[in-house]
């Protein structure tokens, strides 16, 4: 656990200091600067990521997030999702990224937010993702109210990796879960 934090702290600091720009660099393969302890280089996980991306058809190039959470010394859980706006990164700023074909996968830990006063960071991130996601943030890092909400239905997969065991839970859909508010009892049409 101690080494985990030793790894995270420098990235967190880098993300908040615009003068240090090594936090995100072009990575065209999976040989990341990110610690091997995250387990992202696990071939089975990589194949799951590719499968997830192949399931998200309709656009030639997109941006995904890979949220990494260390469950314990043996198990790491990953949440794969797609994003279309910067504000979706508010709770989990990327600490690095890699490319799969033309798609970009941002690696996040959720331990740091998108730094509100760090325009250099956001500018650098913009250069990486291009116009594939919308920068809907104000200069102070808050969401610009002029950007109308989007009918975005993020579909996520959760992947748990324990040693050689990879367990995938697909279709963990939307932020709200299944409909639960039971206030309308629809009457079927009379035949």
């Amino acid at each position: 656990m101690k080494s985990w934090f030793l790894f995270l702290v420098p990235f967190f600091m880098l993300g908040c200091k615009p003068e240090e720009k090594e936090n995100i660099e072009v990575r065209s393969d999976f040989s990341l600067m990110i610690s091997p302890e995250l387990g992202i280089e696990n071939p089975k996980l990589i194949s799951v990521i590719r499968e997830y991306i192949e399931n998200n058809t309709g656009d030639p190039s997109r941006v995904y997030t890979l949220l990494v959470k260390r469950e314990n010394i043996l198990t790491t859980s990953f949440q794969l999702g797609s994003i279309i706006t910067f504000s979706q990164l508010n709770e989990a700023a990327p600490i690095g990224y890699f490319e799969v074909n033309n798609d970009i996968v941002l690696v996040c830990t959720g331990l740091e937010s998108l730094c509100k006063r760090d325009q250099a960071f956001i500018k650098e991130l913009s250069g990486i993702v291009g116009d594939r996601i919308v920068n809907d943030l104000l200069p102070d890092g808050t969401k610009d109210p002029n950007y109308l909400p989007k009918m975005f239905d993020p579909s996520t997969w959760e992947v748990k990796v324990t040693g050689d065991s990879v367990v995938i839970e697909k279709g963990v859909m939307n932020l709200l879960g299944p409909p639960v508010v039971e206030i309308i009892k629809f009457t079927p049409p009379k035949k």
């Binding site: 399931n55 998200n56 109308l148 909400p149 989007k150 009918m151 975005f152 239905d153 993020p154 579909s155 279709g171 859909m173 939307n174 932020l175 709200l176 879960g177 299944p178 409909p179």
Partner: peptide
């Protein structure tokens, strides 16, 4: 009305509901 052709288990998203307020 819109379609959800992707995830078979999909529900309404936060974005879907927020657009109703516009």
């Amino acid at each position: 009305i819109h379609t959800h052709p992707g995830d078979p288990h999909s529900g309404l998203s936060a974005g879907d509901l927020d657009v109703t307020q516009i």
